[in-house]
């Protein structure tokens, strides 16, 4: 609790949430129809709705954040307000952690339990003997019980480089943070730029790796549980890196415009937290998806 109470800023009204609601609606209806359109290989309106939704969402984000930035710059926000933002962001990241947990949980269950049972372990001797007598349980799952074959993505090489890239980017971002606190604008800009470059290199390499997986390794979404978890985990991580990088890019623009002070830089900090979180997810991913 703060000892001295400042007035808490409650915006009177805002059109942005309802715009955002319409955007999500369009995205959901659009995507829902679009997915069926591609499944049936027909042309429909789904894609257009989806596109319209995304555009609306972007407009909404711009408008909403412009309001927040304006309010923040004109000093409407109290210390208490910035604590609200911080708390909000931390709990949002917590929810993201749980989203990834669902997929990690699936991975662990599949590896440790389902695979073992398909191979006759636990109380499933008959599963193996009657249904999958030819199946050999091993991880990575290179040949599924149904007979689909694939190759594993090695942990060395590209993924290792990627790990290094992300780790370094976390460090450079940290330097940027110390720079902001000591009001070293030059260092701040440079370090942010490094972070961005590292982030985008990571993404490009990731795209390259996917192409390699699909083309050379036969490792696809459809190649069984290994492919499913591999692509869903790295894929959602990739989406988050993309988001994080876009956010950092806008933070970079704001830095160029001279926003943020050593005391007041919640926007920067939120983006940084997000980036560090995405890094930690990658570390877990690297260990559990690639190495082990």
């Amino acid at each position: 609790m703060s000892n001295s109470y400042e007035k808490y800023y409650v915006p009177a009204q805002s059109p942005w949430p309802i715009v955002g609601a319409v955007a999500l609606f369009l995205i959901a209806v659009g995507a829902g129809n679009y997915i069926n359109d591609i499944t049936y290989q027909r042309t429909g309106f789904g894609g257009y709705l989806l596109f319209a939704g995304i555009v609306t969402l972007i407009i909404m984000l711009f408008g909403w954040f412009r309001n927040v930035i304006d309010e923040s710059m004109s000093g409407l926000y109290s210390q208490q307000m910035s604590r609200s933002f911080r708390l909000g962001m931390s709990w949002f990241i917590m929810s993201e952690v749980m989203f990834f947990m669902a997929f990690f949980g699936a991975l662990f269950y599949g590896r440790m339990i389902a695979l073992n049972w398909l191979g006759g372990g636990g109380n499933n001797a008959s599963t193996f003997a009657v249904l999958w007598p030819e199946f050999q349980a091993s991880w990575p799952l290179l040949k599924t019980p149904g007979g689909t074959e694939t190759q594993a993505m090695p942990a060395t090489g590209l993924p290792m480089i990627n790990t290094a890239l992300l780790l370094i980017s976390s460090v450079t971002l940290h330097f940027a943070h110390t720079a902001i606190e000591q009001n070293k604008r030059g260092q701040l800009k440079l370090m942010l730029l490094f972070t961005l470059i590292l982030g985008f290199s990571f993404l490009s390499l990731q795209v390259y790796e996917y192409v390699h997986a699909y083309r050379d390794l036969g490792l696809t979404l459809a190649s069984g549980f290994y492919g499913s978890t591999f692509f869903m985990l790295t894929g959602f991580h990739g989406v988050h890196v993309t988001l994080g990088a876009i956010i950092l890019f806008f933070i970079f623009l704001r830095v160029l415009k001279g926003h943020f002070t050593p005391e007041n830089h919640f926007g920067f900090q939120a983006a940084a937290w997000y980036w560090h979180f995405v890094d930690v997810v990658w570390l877990c991913l690297y260990v559990f998806v690639y190495v082990l």
Binding site: I35, I113, A114, L118, T144, P145, G146, G224, S228
Partner: peptide, 22 residues
């Protein structure tokens, strides 16, 4: 359903019961 993953399909090494756990 739509992208041929096999989280819940034994033939691909998944398990329908996994869904229920999640």
């Amino acid at each position: 359903k739509y992208f041929a993953t096999s989280f819940f399909d034994a033939a691909g090494g998944g398990d329908p019961v996994l869904f229920q756990h999640i």
